[in-house]
Amino acid sequence: MPAISRDEVAHLARLARIDLSDDELNHLAPQLDVILQSVAQVSEVAAQDIPPTSHPLPLTNVFRQDEIRPCLSAEEALAGAPIVDGAQAVEDERFRVPRILGEEA
């Protein structure tokens, strides 16, 4: 029984916004299956009463003062905008992005 099917891999790719080709899917699905079967070893460990560790150090309550710090200028913020047709995807001091599905005007 594989841990993960080709369809599930395709679903994950959509979830992760990666437009995998069919060839890649065929190649990746068995690899992911092998990896997942291998990492599933973690379930061998009896750990019902063991608390999970999300942070390696037991720090708590690290806060910042509510004090204003210098921002980037709009020019600096937009300087790295992707290039589309030889020009930066910027308009009206904003990032220009492709149409957003389901967006309300």
Binding site: R69, P70, C71, L72, S73, A74, A77, L78, D92, E93, R94, F95
Partner: peptide, 9 residues
């Protein structure tokens, strides 16, 4: 405020 003027990394 003007667009993208109150932003940082």
């Amino acid at each position: 405020a003007p667009p993208n003027s109150q932003v940082c990394p």
